[in-house]
Simulated assay, not measured.
Amino acid sequence: MKTIFIFTFTVFSTLFSLGQTTEISNVTLQNYINVHGKKMELNGAGVRTKYFLPMYVSSLYLQDKSSNPNDVLYNVKHKVVQLDIISDFVTKERIEETVKEGFEYFRNSLEIDDEINMFLGVFKDEVVNGDKFQFVAEDTLCRIIKNNNELLVIDNINFQKALFSIWLGNKPINDDLKEEMLGK
Rank of each mutant, 00 (worst) to 15 (best):
S25W: 08
S25R: 06
N26H: 10
N26A: 11
V27K: 04
T28C: 10
T28L: 15
L29D: 06
L29I: 04
Q30M: 13
N31Q: 11
N31D: 12
Y32F: 15
I33E: 09
I33M: 11
N34D: 12
V35A: 13
V35D: 11
G37R: 05
G37V: 01
K38H: 11
K38C: 03
K39I: 14
K39E: 13
M40S: 10
M40E: 02
M40P: 08
N43H: 07
G44H: 06
G44S: 00
A45V: 02
G46S: 11
G46D: 08
G46Y: 08
G46E: 09
V47L: 09
V47P: 03
V47H: 09
R48M: 04
T49F: 14
T49A: 13
K50T: 12
K50E: 12
Y51F: 12
F52M: 14
F52G: 12
P54R: 09
P54Q: 10
M55I: 14
Y56I: 07
V57D: 08
S58A: 15
S58D: 09
S59P: 00
S59K: 03
S59D: 02
L60Q: 07
L62V: 01
L62R: 08
D64M: 12
S66K: 03
S66F: 06
S67K: 12
N68I: 14
N68Q: 14
N68Y: 13
N68D: 14
P69N: 04
N70Y: 03
N70D: 07
D71E: 08
V72K: 01
V72S: 06
V72R: 01
Y74N: 04
Y74M: 03
N75M: 02
V76M: 05
K77A: 01
H78A: 13
H78S: 13
H78L: 07
V80F: 00
V81E: 05
V81Y: 07
Q82A: 10
L83E: 01
L83T: 05
D84R: 08
I86T: 05
I86V: 03
S87K: 04
D88R: 00
D88Q: 06
F89R: 11
V90T: 00
T91G: 07
K92E: 06
K92A: 04
R94S: 12
I95H: 03
I95Y: 05
E96I: 10
E96D: 11
E96K: 15
E97S: 15
E97R: 14
T98H: 09
V99Q: 10
K100S: 07
E101F: 06
E101T: 05
E101D: 09
G102C: 09
G102Q: 03
